[in-house]
């Protein structure tokens, strides 16, 4: 299976975020998961579990520490997918 593009990863993330925060309005790569959307750590981890199933990968919790925005999460996913190849 070809590695999904950053754009499609970002679309997937934004779709997940809209499910958690239906009233969040317009979301982009710069949307901050905590300060813009008010997600708590458990909500972020739950969202990651769904993304992990979609992409058949595991996201190490300790690598999520530097992720602040939807775009940074897309970058991490792409990096992990490349490492798994």
């Amino acid at each position: 299976m070809p590695t999904p593009s950053r754009e499609s990863l970002l679309e997937n993330i934004i779709a997940q975020l809209k499910q958690i925060k239906p009233d969040a309005g317009s979301l982009s790569a710069d949307t901050d998961l905590v300060s813009d959307l008010g997600l708590d750590s458990v909500q972020v981890l739950e969202m990651c579990t769904d993304l992990e199933d979609d992409l058949d990968l595991s996201i190490p919790v300790n690598r999520l520490g530097e992720v602040r925005t939807a775009g940074q999460l897309a970058d991490l996913l792409q990096q992990l997918l490349n490492e798994a190849d």
């Binding site: 981890l45 579990t49 595991s58 996201i59 190490p60 919790v61 300790n62 690598r63």
Partner: peptide, 23 residues
């Protein structure tokens, strides 16, 4: 396990291992 106690998460952090959760 995703529902493990905070002391387990903190122990992992102290050792510096890669941490993966399962449902």
């Amino acid at each position: 396990d995703a529902d493990c106690h905070a002391s387990i998460y903190d122990g992992c952090k102290l050792g510096g291992a890669e941490v993966i959760r399962f449902r």
